[in-house]
Design a protein around this nucleic acid. Structure first.
Length: 313
RNA sequence: GCCGAGUUAGCUCAGUUGGUAGAGCACGCGACUGAAAAUCGCGGUGUCCACAGUUCGAUUCUGUGACUCGGCA
């Protein structure tokens, strides 16, 4: 397949609370598009307020994919996302519509636009636990040395103090008999990605985050978490490691006050924004960046039209 | 007015038996291939309240002053 034959994929990236949701719905309306969400926390039903998931009204009739597709105890991940996103994008193309990949989970978006070949080994929680227990005895660094002995290339890319990633690499090697570094590949993106980034000054973003969190609390974030627990979902689920949920859980368990929880949510969201920015940098030549402004949607529309025309030449 | 405690990084504070100082948080930055809103890493020069004294040398000791917080009037 040559690059001329590849179909376009509009990709919209940007930090949380920058305004991606309403802008992408606007653009999708103008281009007869559909939206594929690339947001690791919007998969789960019942987690609406804390994830700032778009409401039906905000979607304004634009089909959204990969939102509300799992219960909180079905643990979705990168590989499942990638498979389902490819599928959703292909189906949108088949319908003759334009797909918009929109979201804040940088890793997921990169896996699509860079055509990652993810080591085909689904999580084995028993092995992970065993490896973790082993690390408790010998230390994370010693475990990393074991990895280095059998797969130096993988070990080199993983900090010896990062137990979780060391464990994953060993898990893959043990289960597949193949080096993690060999299974971890990049191919090319099956689509022609057109990347647009939205940004705002940090200070402004932080203000919007604080406001958004106050709104979440007013809209019943605490009740949302309570009802998930009441529905029988274990607080131990990785799903509840989401910002907003972990802190409210601490509050509900009586470990901290609601005020402390609120401060923590704000703080953790700010840290998250900085971490998010690592996936898409201002000097990334693949991305056309926009600062949030009045006529942002018009500007972005113009850019998309031009890029789509270039494709058809 | 008197007595006591305090004044050190944006904030909360530690510390220097006298040789110009360091934690947490904030903030900035980086890594990331089946938990990713996860996980992990890197980044600390600031009139040590001001002035004077002692001293080779004071943020540290002494004196005076300013301010803050308690208590008593």
């Amino acid at each position: 397949m040559t690059s001329e034959q590849k179909k376009p994929l509009i990709v919209i990236v940007g930090p949380t609370a920058v305004g991606k949701t309403s802008i992408s719905v606007n653009l999708a309306q103008r281009f007869d598009g559909e939206i594929v969400s690339a947001d690791s926390r919007s998969f789960y039903r019942g987690m609406d307020i804390g994830t700032a998931k778009p409401t039906l009204e905000e979607m304004r009739g634009i089909p959204h994919h990969l939102i509300n597709v799992a219960d909180p105890d079905e643990i979705w991940n990168l590989a499942i996302f990638q498979r389902r996103a490819y599928q959703a994008i292909d189906e949108i193309h088949d319908r003759g519509k334009l797909p918009f990949l929109v979201g804040g989970t940088g890793q997921y978006i990169r896996s699509i636009i860079e055509g990652w070949r993810i080591p085909p080994q689904k999580p084995d929680y028993n092995i992970r636990e065993a490896l973790t227990l082993w690390a408790d005895r010998i230390g994370a660094e010693a475990l990393h040395e074991r990895l280095e002995a059998i797969d130096p290339a993988a070990a080199e890319k993983i900090d010896y103090r990062n137990l979780r990633r060391t464990v994953r690499a060993l898990e893959v090697i043990l289960k597949t008999g193949t080096r993690f570094s060999e299974l971890r590949q990049k191919q090319t993106c099956p689509y022609h990605p057109i990347l647009l980034g939205i940004d705002r000054p940090r200070e402004e973003l932080y203000e919007r985050i604080d406001e958004r969190i106050e709104t979440m609390l007013a809209e019943g974030l605490v009740q949302e978490v309570e009802s998930l627990i009441r529905a029988g979902f274990s607080p131990e689920l990785p799903t509840f490691s989401a910002i907003g949920y972990q802190e409210i859980l601490q509050y509900l368990q009586g470990n901290i006050s609601l005020e402390e929880a609120t401060l923590l949510i704000k703080r953790n969201t700010r840290i998250f924004v900085r971490r998010q920015a690592n996936w898409f940098k201002p000097d990334d030549p693949r991305i056309t960046w926009f600062q949030a402004s009045e006529n942002l949607v018009d500007q972005m529309e113009t850019t998309i039209r031009r890029r789509l025309n270039d494709l058809n030449k």
